[in-house]
Design a protein around this nucleic acid. Structure first.
Lengths: 227, 227
DNA sequence: TGTATTTTGTGATTTTTTTCACATCAAACT
DNA sequence: AGTTTGATGTGAAAAAAATCACAAAATACA
């Protein structure tokens, strides 16, 4: 129906995240240099793939010498704009929203949840470490902190309505935890995280594997879960 | 380094989840029948793709008549073994674990968290609606409830250690929320849900888009976020 | 009952992604 | 210094995935 022309990104991006996770671990273990096959072994891809992905993102190593972990991590920081601070807002302070608001890893990666919002801010305020505002103050806060990305953790029934509001006030990216397909303009990115689907797909693969039992098909199943 | 031969699954599986989400919504709106292009429009893929995916999973419609939503949902229940109940355990009752233990959607889809585990079960017990056990009782509970799949929400520092234990007691699938790459035998499925990565990839795409600004590249970026 | 219309289902084709393979370079060793 | 060794980087080849395109089937309607 509609043709989409190639640009960049694709699975490479997801694999870059994998590589980085692996690099962080290796660094912690005191390793300083890696080869493409080191990363390959760690992450379960081929060494060619690692090099191709790096090539895609213009990441260079030294022939024979492999890659300096620190340099590599630096490259990746660059790619993900980790040098800059990113202000985020979080909408919906139910159980999940609350947990996300306390998730310390975001801060460690320079992603700061500057404010949270809820229909009933007073009820949630006491449980939260962060300020909880009513939706009425969304525009004010977003403008003040130049927020471009929001985490959406509201009940599915109000997800679309809240999304429309987010789009209206200028949000350009949404990580959506509500199990609904949001309608947004073409210039707004939505990344759906569907917890049920994640669990269900594991159940599916486990079943499939138990049934297939053989060792032949396992690799692909495994592979498919990862990227 | 290693060759992986085709079997089944691939992105189709992820898209099936998309279709289902869309079908559930349409059904709620009172719709009873869909055509491949209805689903295509709803989910942002092409109608050919929808039909190809269905073909992959042996889902049949009627020529000219399209697909009966109920029948389609039935097919998908079949695919995901939704008719059966699935017992799950949840390891790690920190903020995230607690939120997941209260996540009502799992139950709605026949996935029951039958027990939770934590290093310090007594501290967590009062906040939880579900039983919280110490890790020592893992094998007993898993055997009793025939659990094959676990949700891992422990700190990254103990993730591998806990995983080893899970594998030892016979767990075959893990949804891992710790931002580490777990080492598991080939017959154990790991599905990593990395909250930082999800957020970061949105930030990445938003940046990319603001920079590219044009309308030409937007579609692909959007697409890549979804599947 | 027959014809027109519309949508499925799937081989054939095109595009994208992955893998292969090798020239190229840098270090290590003699 | 020269030679050997071992890893990168990248075009070329292969494989996989998406799109096209059309025959087959089912409905609607005359």
């Amino acid at each position: 129906m509609k043709k989409i022309t190639k640009y960049i990104i694709k699975n490479s991006l997801k694999r870059i995240f994998l590589y980085r996770a692996s690099l962080v671990r290796l660094k912690m273990m005191g390793v300083e240099k890696v080869f493409s096959y080191t990363l390959a072994n760690e992450t379960g891809v081929t060494s060619d793939q690692v090099r191709k992905d790096f090539s895609e993102f213009r990441i260079k190593g030294n022939k024979r010498g492999g890659y300096e972990i620190n340099e590599l991590l630096g490259n990746m920081e660059e790619i993900f704009h980790r040098n800059k601070d990113h202000n985020i807002v979080l909408i919906g302070m139910g159980n999940l929203g609350l947990a996300l608001s306390k998730y310390s890893k975001f801060v460690q990666r320079n992603m700061n949840v500057v404010a949270t919002f809820d229909i009933d801010p007073f009820k949630q305020k006491m449980r939260s470490d962060l300020p909880v505002y009513s939706m009425g103050r969304l525009k004010e806060i977003i403008d003040r902190f130049k927020v471009k990305v929001a985490i959406l953790a509201v009940p599915e029934i109000s997800a679309q309505e809240v999304t429309d509001e987010l789009v209206r006030v200028g949000i350009k990216g949404i990580v959506n935890f509500a199990p609904v397909l949001l309608k947004v303009p073409a210039d707004v990115i939505v990344n759906n995280v569907n917890l049920c689907d994640e669990l269900e797909s594991v159940i599916y693969c486990v079943h499939k594997m138990i049934k297939a039992d053989g060792l032949k098909n396992i690799e692909l199943l495994y592979r498919d879960m990862k990227y």
